[in-house]
């Protein structure tokens, strides 16, 4: 299977008054055709910025993609001009945001907003676009499609709006769908429906999904491949089953441990001590060292690199280095 998306050595920096924030630091990942890749990490780990870098949403003057390559279908998105990028966005790469309530224009009808990418990228007439828009509303499982098309966003619930966002995203049959925490703002029963729908569309159209989430339940349910990010770096990646069964990095272990287990009473839920380090104060070290139970001297002074750990996993941890350099 070919890679739809290849990110290599991506660095995205924000230049603030206090200094440079390396929000994404030398990150690499691949999304193969028809695959769901999840990026997991807590808030501030750089997972959303990674997605935004792909979409070209990191905007100056503060933010800048400092280096690397983002290849979509072999084309480096970072080298494209505004217009070339515009024809890819919404057409071949689509994106869903976390907040469906604010991602739709409040003064435009749902139908109008659904028609726009069709008119723009598919060169449909208004009439044809409206017809297709109503079909799409039906496809995402909303009845009374005609009436919904004439509604304004404030008249619909969050779950319905997220379905509309998905309808807009899939309207031009993209090869890659980036979903940035698509279910975070929704209640749990709706979450499952939305995820189901995403998976169904993936299977029907063969598109790939880059799913960004902090919810390990979502990862377990959806992912083929998982990338764990911490403080702007990939700390571990691997096939979902392998990674869940045999996590290598202490951070991944901590994440998995801090998830409640159904049907099993625990007196106290485990949580990783400490907080994500201030991105301004990072020194060459393993960024997780001050929260890590297995911290060694070397972890405080040198940064581990991502290395093969067998079983299709890659991990960046000094514990996995066979020869510990002195």
């Amino acid at each position: 299977m070919s890679n739809v998306l290849e990110i290599e050595h991506l660095s995205t920096h924000f230049h603030t008054e206090e200094g440079v924030v390396r929000a994404v630091d030398d990150v690499g990942l691949q999304v193969r055709q028809g695959e769901i890749v999840c990026i997991v990490g807590e808030s501030g780990s750089g997972k959303s910025i990674t997605a935004m870098s792909v979409m070209g949403l990191v905007e100056g003057p503060a933010g800048r993609v400092a280096g690397g390559r983002i290849a979509f279908d072999g084309i480096d998105l970072l080298k494209l001009g505004r217009n070339e990028l515009r024809t890819i966005r919404g057409n071949e790469i689509a994106m869903i945001f976390q907040e469906p309530m604010t991602s739709l224009n409040p003064v435009l009808k749902i139908g109008e907003q659904l028609m726009e990418p069709l008119i723009e990228h598919r060169k449909m007439s208004k009439k044809a676009a409206r017809k297709r828009a109503i079909e799409l509303i039906g496809e995402v499982g909303i009845s009374r499609a005609e009436q919904i098309a004439d509604s304004y966003p404030h008249e619909l619930s969050g779950g319905m709006l997220q379905r509309i966002m998905i309808a807009i995203a899939i309207s031009c049959e993209p090869k890659l769908l980036i979903a940035d925490e698509p279910t975070t703002a929704l209640d749990v029963t709706i979450q499952a429906q939305i995820l189901d729908m995403l998976r169904r569309f993936k299977e029907e159209s063969g598109m790939s999904i880059l799913l960004i989430t902090h919810d390990l339940g979502v990862v377990a349910e959806m992912a083929d491949y998982v990338v764990v990010m911490y403080a702007g770096k990939v700390v571990e990646e691997g096939e979902v089953v392998a990674l869940f069964e045999n996590p290598q990095h202490p951070y991944t272990k901590g994440l998995l441990k801090s998830k409640p287990i159904i049907n099993q009473r625990q007196d106290e839920l485990y949580s990783i001590p400490g907080q994500v380090p201030n991105p301004l104060e990072l020194t060459p070290s393993c960024y997780f060292h001050d929260r890590c139970a297995y911290c060694m001297d070397i972890c405080r002074t040198q940064q581990p690199v991502l290395k093969d750990a067998g079983n299709g996993q890659k991990v960046a941890c000094w514990l996995n280095e066979e020869v510990t350099p002195v």
């Binding site: 979409m55 949403l57 890819i88 919404g90 689509a94 945001f97 907040e99 991602s103 409040p106 726009e116």
Partner: peptide, 11 residues
Amino acid sequence: EYMQATVVLGL
């Protein structure tokens, strides 16, 4: 955010 969404839609 909805303007960011229009960027993503390539309008």
